[in-house]
Design a protein around this nucleic acid. Structure first.
Lengths: 208, 208, 208, 208
DNA sequence: TATGAATGAGTTTTCATTCAT
DNA sequence: TATGAATGAAAACTCATTCAT
């Protein structure tokens, strides 16, 4: 199908992607409001007017940026940590570990966190809703996993799966947010992930 | 001491607080950038230049707003859920429950969450740092609690307390953020809190 | 007549004068536009609202200030350097010297020069006219002196007295303006005056 | 070299000059403070924000205006009244006449006088300094001429050249300032110049 | 098609002046 | 009477968006 595109069309698509990429950087660095269309255009190396041949408005590209980043994040998750349900606790543990690492890889890019957790929420109600819809989806998915584990018997029988899922997704988002702190080095980040997973499975209480 | 203030002085202080209150609303509703000084003034019912008799700039009142909200939040925590260390697991469980409820009471006000987690981070590097400093403090405090519990023996001996504290604070922030979702009703919120606390202590794994 | 004034009236007049004095300082230091009514009031030690009990507007006090400074300047001139006409060249030389010194004493106060030559001309056409009327008066007076000297025979017969008077008044104003230069010390100032008087009488050409 | 400029570039430069020209008018007519950027733009027939595509700020264009006017004035002087030193009194007389006429031609444009003597001094310390530096330069140049004449013997041997130069430059500035008076017609202006030159060379005293 | 030029709507901020105590 | 509080008019400046080349 790509050979059916003319050179101009391919060029056009490529430029569009370059603009999105530049916008990701610029919005993450300076924030949506402080970033100007001119900044984005300059980074791409085009006139700021050309920008408008590809996007209707500044708002429109933010939307596209958020969309793109959301897509990448979900793609990264979908990779090999497929939603195939685990049948034993150990399998589930492994799966969660893999998911956690994938999420960490995503969140390690501060731009992603800034765009999704900060900018997307601060600009606009409509965008905020879109984001919360994604979060709700994540909660639903997680609920499914927990339901499955509870049915299989390796998770606590009385688990309030929906509420627990919400707490877990919250933990993901919150630690991602905390990861923006400049204090946090790589090692700390890794330990936090491990602690979170350990917490998730076993809690903090000592067992005899 | 309050009787030592003249009528004019009291009036002045009161107006100042009204402005802060209005700013909390306006910033939470429309976001810092989309909110104008005129909007704040209008909500208070004063001329927009009167605003400048009480605050030097728009930026200055945001700072004051964040300060105020942070102070209220910490005050709410400090209430009766004093940092007095628990000596048994049950005491600690109770304490955590009380803290969780206090935090929930704070976070139930969507304005607080919006201001602290969204606006304060999106406006300015300086403000962002201030906020992260607060989060780091929360992590340190939590680490202290966990250390104490581990030393007493009611928490897991091999607990990575600092990393776990980070995960826990992340869970608080993340669930607060999720709480912005308009879908979430009172009951859901409560269940999420309970699930979070349960998760924290016992994890999700079934015990025989 | 002053004993007919009540205490309150005297106090009022005195305060009015204090305000004018403060305004002279403030306008000279910061310029009319950059100076605020509040600055003047603060210097006097009164509330800025009280200012309006004594003057109708900021513009009004500038007028008063210019009037006052002009009056002082002319008074200083009128002193002992009375317009009594000289009958000999030497008498006229003496007279011009006295006048020059009096003018220098006035112009040594940079505030006067700033107010009359800079501020009064830059604010307003009406004020500018008032000032030029004063200058024209000075030209007329000088013309009278020169006419007198020419009639007496100690000044050149073919002297274009009106035009020369204009040149002489110009020299006074111009050197006063140059005197604002921070470079100029007391000695230079004196030498300039003497050079100007010498120039006026004898020109620069060598005589055999 | 001008053909190397694209149409757009020429247009841009031309517009820039139109703005400067308009600003000269507007600042001279209403004074720097009372003139708004919008007034300048309106006179050029452009939107007020277009102004900001050519100048950074209102202050910046004043600087440019003063620079331009100063440049024009010095250019007018530099014309054919070159600084080539005169060797005889008559040559010097001629030279001074030419210079005086050139200066008069400059000062005949009231805008120039207003901008340089009034506005430039009233706005800003920095600009005032720049102007006084120019005046000091004029004094130095004049001193050089006088030194030369004294050395040649056609000027008085005991002439305090520096001080006299200051008095002469003062006379130039002062008569220029007086020339702002609306009373003054062309004829008066010319006579004043001639009287000034006559005064400069021969003084007012009758010679037998 | 790509672009720089142009623009007006909008925002923050100042300050002379009036008002209420 | 003296004053601080209140205010609105005005002004500089920015920037997303449109236009003309």
């Amino acid at each position: 199908m790509s050979q059916s595109l003319s050179y101009a069309e391919r060029r056009r698509i490529q430029l569009r992607e370059e603009i999105i990429e530049a916008a990701i950087d610029v919005f993450a660095e300076r924030g949506y409001h402080d970033a100007g269309v001119a900044d984005i255009a300059e980074r791409v190396g085009i006139g700021h007017s050309t920008f408008y041949r590809h996007f209707d408005s500044k708002r429109a590209i933010l939307e596209q940026v958020v969309e793109t980043v959301m897509a990448r994040a979900t793609a990264a998750l979908a990779g090999d940590n497929a939603p195939a349900a685990a049948t034993t606790l150990d399998e589930y543990r492994d799966q969660v570990h893999r998911i956690a690492e994938a999420l960490d890889a995503i969140a390690a890019d501060a731009r992603v966190v800034r765009l999704l957790l900060v900018q997307a929420v601060s600009v606009d109600i409509a965008l905020e809703r879109r984001l919360f819809a994604l979060f709700d989806l994540a909660v639903d998915l997680t609920t499914g996993y927990l339901d499955h584990g509870r049915d299989r018997g390796y998770l606590r029988r009385e688990l309030d799966t929906a509420a627990t899922a919400r707490a877990l997704v919250g933990m993901i988002l919150g630690t991602a947010l905390l990861g923006l702190s400049p204090e946090l080095d790589r090692d700390n980040r890794t330990r936090t992930i491990q602690a979170a997973v350990h917490l998730m499975f076993d809690g903090i209480v000592a067992r005899q």
